[in-house]
């Protein structure tokens, strides 16, 4: 029975992935992509990787969904103010397409074949005895946490996690570089709807509490900084949508501090540990639990701030042409 569910889930995930690529309209693509994210999250649950499942659901179906919907609004004929231009652009694009369609197709097929070979090779060479599980289990008492995934992420492979936080910040910097940075100073637009405002106010403390819970539970079960960060980012995005853009309401230095807090403290801690004679991110076992909790909390704050800022900047970038249109 459970094998049947797994097979259905695998077929569903692949089917949805293809459908989201092949869908005719952008709206369909976006919504099938949501469904794909949820199917993938379910697949992770079936594989016993609850941490990955929560992150997948929160980021792929939640945060990316918000970004895609936002982009979709930009593409919809109602808001695009120069439709003839886009029509012309589309024509050029499609002409280009017919000419050079062969190369992408060949690349796609080659990529698929390569991917298939690599996955087959990986399945073939799954090590007996569960890979690194044994060595993680033996080192677990020294890591300061009880959950093996958190132990790997925040202690054994802390360097990777540090880089991941950096990647999110780097993405934000790229968005800043493409013109988002000065748009922080957008005048407050109050949410026109009293119901929306009330619901957002109602959900804000609950989301905060749930994020804090996920952060703390990461010590002994599925959860942790990334999941908590996404939930806290949801607060920022909701407040932004409800007419309270957080980043234009707090002072600029505070925003920058929140953005760099996680990465900065993580690195500082690593350097202090190195100065004490250990290697980078080698926590003393006595303090490991506390240090991991502090690092995770600050990382979650930074991730939340970065994701909120990514949304806020992308959201404001597309409002720029509309403003220009209204002034002319």
């Amino acid at each position: 029975m459970s094998v049947l569910i797994d097979i259905i889930l695998a077929i569903l995930a692949i089917y949805l992935a293809f459908q989201s690529l092949l869908a005719k309209r952008l709206t369909q693509t976006v919504f099938i992509f949501f469904a794909f994210g949820l199917a993938l999250a379910l697949a992770w649950v079936r594989l016993g990787a609850i941490d990955v499942a929560i992150t997948e659901a929160a980021i792929a179906a939640g945060f990316m969904g918000v970004l895609f919907l936002d982009a979709l609004r930009d593409f919809s004929p109602r808001t695009s103010n120069n439709q003839e231009k886009t029509e012309a652009a589309k024509d050029i694009f499609s002409k280009k397409n017919t000419k050079s369609l062969l190369l992408p197709r060949v690349a796609l097929v080659l990529g698929l074949v390569l991917f298939l070979l690599i996955s087959l090779e990986a399945i073939w060479n799954i090590p007996d005895g569960g890979g690194l599980t044994v060595s993680v289990e033996t080192m677990l008492p020294e890591s300061g946490v009880e959950h093996p995934v958190t132990a790997v992420l925040l202690n054994f492979r802390a360097y990777d996690t540090w880089l991941e936080i950096g990647v999110i910040l780097l993405g934000l910097l790229a968005i800043f570089a493409t013109g988002g940075i000065k748009l922080y100073l957008k005048p407050d637009v109050p949410a026109q709807d009293i119901l929306l405002r009330q619901v957002i106010l109602f959900f804000t403390p609950i989301l905060f509490l749930f994020g804090a819970f996920l952060l703390y539970i990461g010590k002994s079960g599925p959860g942790g900084a990334f999941q908590a960060g996404v939930l806290w980012a949801a607060i920022g995005i909701l407040l932004h949508l409800g007419g309270k853009p957080v980043f234009s309401m707090i002072p600029r230095w505070l925003g920058q501090l929140l953005l760099t807090l996680g990465l900065g403290f993580f690195l500082l801690l690593g350097f202090i540990l190195m100065a004490g004679g250990a290697t980078l991110f080698e926590y003393p076992p006595a303090y490991a639990g506390v240090l991991i909790l502090i690092v995770e909390t600050l990382a979650a704050i930074s991730i939340a701030a970065a994701l909120t800022a990514i949304f806020a900047n992308l959201n404001q970038m597309q409002e720029k042409p509309n403003d220009i249109e209204s002034t002319t």
Partner: peptide
């Protein structure tokens, strides 16, 4: 309960958007 709240709110918002359209 939270799903109920979120889905009825989004239902209301979508309906309002359509009505304004």
């Amino acid at each position: 309960f939270f799903t109920l709240l979120a889905s009825s709110t989004s239902c209301y918002l979508i309906a309002r958007f359509q009505k304004e359209k």
